[in-house]
Design a binder for these strands. Structure first.
Lengths: 338, 338
DNA sequence: TCTTTCTATAAACGCGCGTTTATATTTCTA
DNA sequence: TAGAAATATAAACGCGCGTTTATAGAAAGA
C-alpha cells in the first residue's frame, strides 16, 4: 500500500481499485493500476491473510511416502493437483507422512492447519475415518480424501473420491470368463486400506455374477507392492496347491512380483496362467508380458477432487460430496484363452 | 498470545518462554508451557511472518511438467526434498511451470517470492542463467538450482548442483572400450539444457582419453524423451550410413525409443549393437534387454541441495556453493563384447 | 443562494504476533 | 536502612494490509 500511496492517492483508493469496487473515478483507477505495474508492487501474502483474506493455499498430504512415491501414478496425481489448483489461483503445500499412526506426524499435519498456512487439505493414502481427519473436519476445515465412503460419512462435511473397484473387478472377471477361464484366483491387497476389502468384495460379486465358484485357496493375501506379490506366490507354491488358470492382482506392482515368482517356478504368463492387474502402471505396457490391466484416469479424478475442495473452501459447496471414478480395461498380452 | 495471557502472565513473558530467553522464573515458565499445551495453542504463521519471522517454507519449482513428471525420478526428487525440508522444520510449496519462456508463468514464480510466501526456491529443470532467476538472485533471494555451473556464476549468490556427466561418460566409454568396441556413437540430448552439451563434452573427452576417434556421423541429435530417441534412430537409418557397434544415449528414455526403432529395423540389442543409457530409470531393470546405465543418487543429491538451500536461508552459508554428483555404472544386459 | 445528498479522499483501527521500552518489584551492596 | 543494581511484569509499537469511519468536496434540488 505504501508504495501505491507514493502515487498520489490514498490507500483506501488503492484498496478499492484492487478489489474492483465501484466508487472510484476511472482516471484515478487507471493511474493507480499504472503505478502498481510500474513499481511491480505485489501485496505481502502474510499481511493479506492477517487482514482477513484466505491463504489461497491447499495442503497436499501423502501418507506412506515410501510406498506412494515409488508408485508411478503419484507423479500424475501431484502434477494434476498442482496444475488444477494453480489454474484457480491456489498454491499447494506438499507434505509427506511416513505413517498415519505416529503422533508426531499427526501433530505436524494438524499444525499446518492450525497455523493457518492453508485453507484446506487433500489427503492421499489416508483412511477416511482417521481420527485426526475427523477432528479437522469437525473443527470446520475443508478436507478432501481419496478413500471409500464409510457409513455415517454422509452427514459430515467432507469430500470423498474413490475408485469403482467393483466395476473394475466385474470387467476383469467377465474378460477372463469370456476367455473360458473357470478357475480365477485373486491376489488381494492390504486389507487395512480401502482398496483391499473393496476389491475383494468386487471379486466375490463379479464371480457370483458370472456364475463362477470362488475357491478360497486361490485367494492369496498380499500388500500393494511388488515384493508382497512375489512373496504371496512363493508362499502359495510351498503349499503344493495347484494354480488356477487365471489370477487377478490387487495392482500392477503386485502382478510384477507375482509374475517374477511364477517365472522362477517355471510357470509362464500367459502360456500357463493369465494375469490381470490394476492401475495401468507406467511399466505395464513395457513389461514382459505387457500387462492387461484396469486403468483409472487419475488426472481427471484429481481434477475433480481439487476443484471440489476449492469450491468447498470458497463456500460454493458444502456438506458431503462424493464421486467414484470408473475403470477401463486395457487389453494387452498377459491373458490367453483357456 | 491472547490465549496464553489468559494463563495469568503477560504476553512478553510468553514470548520469552517460547524463544527460550533467560530472564524468566522457572516456575512461571513451567506454567506457561503447561497452559500452551493445555489449550493446544499454535501461533498463527502469517502473524509470525508479519512480525519478522521467516515463513519456514521453500518453493519447489519444476519446469516442464509434462516431461519431468512423466519421468520416474521426479518422484524421488520431490519426496527427498520434502522429507529433508520437513526434518529441518520447513514446508514445501510446490509449483509447476509449463515452460520457462512464458511471461505469465515467470510472473507467477516471481510473485511467490514477492508475496513472501517462501524463504527461498529450488529449481529443477531450469537453466542456471535464466534471466528471471538471475533477477531473483540479484534481489537477494536464496536460490538453489540443478544445473551446470556457468562462467561468471562463481561471483553470484547461488547454490548449484549438477551431475558429473564427464565422469559418467568416461565410465561408459571405458566400459565399451573394455568390450573391444571402437565404433561408439552418441545419441545426444537437448542442447538447450545442461545435460546436452555437458554429455557431449564428456563424450569427446572420454573418447579422446581412450584413444578412440570420434565420427560425427555417429552423433545423433535428439531430446530427452523416448520419442526423440525413436525418431533419431529412424532419421539416421534413412541416411544409409552404417551403424556403429555401440551407442551411448542421453538418458534411458532415449535408449528405450532408440532400441524400439532399432528393433523395427531388425537390429537387436545387444546382439547387433550395444547400448548404454543414463539415469537408471525405474523401467531400465525390467526393460528387454535390461539396460546398462549410469545411476545417479538423486535422493542424496536432493538432500544436499535442500540442506544447502536452508543453510543459505538461515545465513549459515553465503555466496556461491556448488557440488557435482558422481554416477555409478550399472551393468546389465544391453552391452556385449564386440 | 443555501441546504441536502451523494461521492471522493483521508485517516484510524484491527488482524496476531514479536520486540522494545517503561514501570513495578525484589535483591544486594554500602 | 537507604540507595543502587538486577530482575519481573506490563504496556505500547510496528509489521503490511483491508476495511470502516470521518471528513472534505462536488452535484443536485429547493
Amino acid at each position: 500500500m505504501e508504495i501505491a500511496r507514493l502515487a498520489g492517492v490514498s490507500r483506501s483508493t488503492v484498496s478499492r481499485v484492487i478489489n474492483n469496487y465501484s466508487n472510484v473515478p476511472p482516471e484515478t483507477r487507471e493511474k493507480v493500476l499504472r503505478i502498481i505495474e510500474q513499481y511491480h508492487y505485489v501485496p505481502n501474502a502474510s499481511a493479506q491473510v492477517l487482514a482477513g483474506k484466505k491463504t489461497r493455499t491447499i495442503g497436499l498430504f501423502m501418507i506412506e511416502a515410501g510406498q506412494v512415491s515409488s508408485d508411478m501414478l503419484t507423479n500424475m496425481l501431484i502434477a494434476s493437483i498442482i496444475e488444477n489448483a494453480s489454474s484457480r489461483g491456489y498454491y499447494v503445500l506438499t507434505h509427506i507422512l511416513r505413517n498415519a499412526e505416529d503422533a508426531e506426524s499427526i501433530r505436524g499435519v494438524k499444525d499446518i492447519f492450525y497455523q493457518r498456512r492453508i485453507d484446506g487439505g487433500l489427503f492421499i493414502g489416508a483412511n477416511n475415518d482417521e481420527p485426526f481427519i475427523e477432528q479437522l473436519i469437525s473443527e470446520g476445515y475443508s478436507v478432501a480424501i481419496v478413500d471409500q465412503e464409510k457409513p455415517g460419512c454422509e452427514e459430515s462435511n467432507r469430500i470423498v473420491a474413490n475408485f469403482d473397484n467393483e466395476s473394475g473387478m466385474m470387467q476383469a472377471v467377465k474378460w477372463l470368463a469370456g476367455l473360458k477361464h473357470r478357475q480365477i484366483g485373486l491376489i488381494s491387497g492390504d486389507m487395512r486400506r480401502y482398496s483391499g476389502p473393496s476389491k475383494l468384495d468386487g471379486y466375490y460379486k463379479a464371480m457370483k455374477h458370472c456364475g463362477i465358484p470362488v475357491e478360497k485357496k486361490w485367494i492369496l493375501p498380499a500388500g500393494f507392492n511388488e515384493q508382497s506379490g512375489y512373496e504371496a506366490v512363493n508362499e502359495f507354491m510351498r503349499t503344493g496347491v495347484p494354480l488356477p488358470t487365471a489370477m487377478i492382482t490387487a495392482n500392477d506392482s503386485v502382478a510384477f512380483g507375482a509374475i517374477r515368482a511364477l517365472r522362477e517356478h517355471g510357470i509362464l504368463v500367459p502360456q500357463h496362467i493369465s494375469i490381470i492387474g490394476f492401475d495401468d502402471h507406467a511399466l505395464s505396457s513395457r513389461f514382459q508380458p505387457a500387462l492387461t490391466t484396469l486403468r483409472i484416469d487419475f488426472g481427471a479424478m484429481m481434477e475433480r477432487l481439487t476443484n471440489s475442495l476449492i469450491d468447498h473452501i470458497e463456500h460454493r459447496t458444502s456438506g458431503f460430496t462424493k464421486f467414484a471414478v470408473d475403470m477401463q480395461l486395457i487389453v494387452r498380452d498377459s491373458c490367453r484363452e483357456n
